[in-house]
Design a binder for these strands. Structure first.
Length: 107
DNA sequence: CTAATGACATTTG
DNA sequence: ACAAATGCCATTA
């Protein structure tokens, strides 16, 4: 499994109404390649399969999106996440901690 | 193999 | 708080 494959796999596990960060994904993969995570998501061929719009920057900003940041924000709002000025409202509340949550999910 | 790039993160001015 | 510069890792040319 390639790095990108792992990234997409983790992205799929982000529940609706929650967001994660590139940094957390990288950490979950035991690496610091958050840049590579972003790149992988950018070129992700499983557009509808992988909810890549739920991945944001570590400081709570929405970051970028292949089809336009605006689109990403719209999608997030549809999921129930409030976005103000390109920033996630209650970021800490909707933040999905990959490491912990995945552990609970697996057991 | 070397160089350049990016949906980032951190530090500095 | 904002903008710019630097570092980072995987991918791609």
């Amino acid at each position: 499994m390639n790095f990108s494959q792992k990234v997409w796999n983790l992205c799929k596990k982000i529940p609706k109404g929650r967001v994660s960060t590139y940094r957390e994904i990288a950490k979950a993969l035991k690496t610091k390649a958050y840049r590579a995570v972003g790149s992988a998501l950018n070129k992700n061929p499983y557009a509808p399969v992988v909810p890549c719009h739920r991945v944001v920057n570590s400081d709570g900003r929405v970051g970028g999106f292949a089809r336009g940041v605006k689109k990403k924000i719209e999608l997030l709002k549809k999921e129930g996440i409030k976005v103000r000025n390109k920033k996630i409202a209650g970021f800490e509340k909707v933040f999905f901690r990959l490491k912990k949550q995945l552990k609970k999910q697996n057991l």
